[in-house]
Simulated scan of single mutants.
Amino acid sequence: MNFQDLHELLRLELLRRIDRGTLTQSRLAQQTGFQQAHISNFLNRKRALSLEGLDRVLASQNLSIDQILPLDLTAAAIPPPTQTSDPIEIIPVVSPSAAMDDARISPASIIETIQVSASRLHDNRARPSTRHAHWQRFLAIRADTQQSAAMDPLLSPGAIAVLDRHYNSLSPYRAHQPTLYAVRCGAALLLRFVDFDEGRLILRPYSRDFPVQLLPLATHETPGDYIVGRVCLVFSEL
């Protein structure tokens, strides 16, 4: 993640607050001491903030950088094999269909593997649905072009998203931060933020250029029937 990405994350968080009605451009200008035109230009991508300006906006909203990062991003290449005192786990990278449907991953379904430290995996809290409680817990998929575009800049094309298939709950994983899920939507596996209201899953992209999708549930279905897992790690290729 670079300085430009941080600008974009902050800009999108401010726009979400404005959309929810908890913030206005004029109020933000008053809080930061900027002219409203300056704030408007920033929100509309017409100008960037200085480092000092970024700090002023974060302070005005009682935000820290880690609060606008909705998941554990590793902005580097997939780590090569290393010798370390921390045990290493081999995570299979599979197709979206295998991630959705295969309780146990067979060798034939493995496209490639990555190595992740065991502590980074097993420090994750689990909230499995009854259906997924005995499924193989951790696996990964590569984000295709459409998935990465919908979640830009959180996911770059070809990024590997590690899924925790023992987290199928809509309870936020971290307070005041959205949780990124892998969700079954017909034959597709979508990576989205998810809400639930009036019997429908609301699938929200990060990019404002993509539409919100509504996924109605049958009376006998629960959100856990569609939530394949939580995205707990992302490895971006250089």
Rank of each mutant, 00 (worst) to 15 (best):
I202E: 04
L201Y: 06
A175K: 11
S207M: 10
A188E: 10
Y206F: 14
A161R: 03
A188F: 10
P178I: 00
F193P: 02
S156M: 10
Y181C: 10
P178G: 00
R174P: 02
S171P: 01
A182E: 04
E198H: 15
L180A: 03
A149M: 04
F196A: 14
L189M: 13
Y206M: 09
L155V: 05
Y206Q: 11
R192T: 08
D197G: 02
L170Q: 06
Q177F: 00
A175L: 06
R184M: 14
A182N: 03
R204S: 10
P157V: 12
H166P: 06
Y167W: 15
S207K: 12
A175R: 06
I160A: 03
F210A: 12
R184T: 15
P205G: 14
Y181V: 04
A187T: 10
V183W: 03
A150Y: 05
A159N: 04
D152Y: 10
D209M: 10
I202Y: 06
Y173H: 06
R200H: 13
L180M: 07
L201G: 08
R184I: 13
A150F: 09
A149P: 02
A182R: 11
D197Y: 12
S156W: 07
G199F: 11
L170V: 07
S156E: 06
F193H: 13
I160G: 00
F210M: 09
D195L: 11
P157C: 10
L190C: 13
A150R: 14
V194S: 08
D152K: 13
L163I: 15
T179G: 06
T179A: 07
L190S: 12
T179F: 06
P211M: 02
D164P: 05
V162S: 11
L180Y: 04
A161L: 14
Y206H: 15
H166F: 08
L163C: 05
R192Q: 07
I202K: 14
I160M: 09
D197F: 11
Y206E: 08
A149R: 12
G199Q: 01
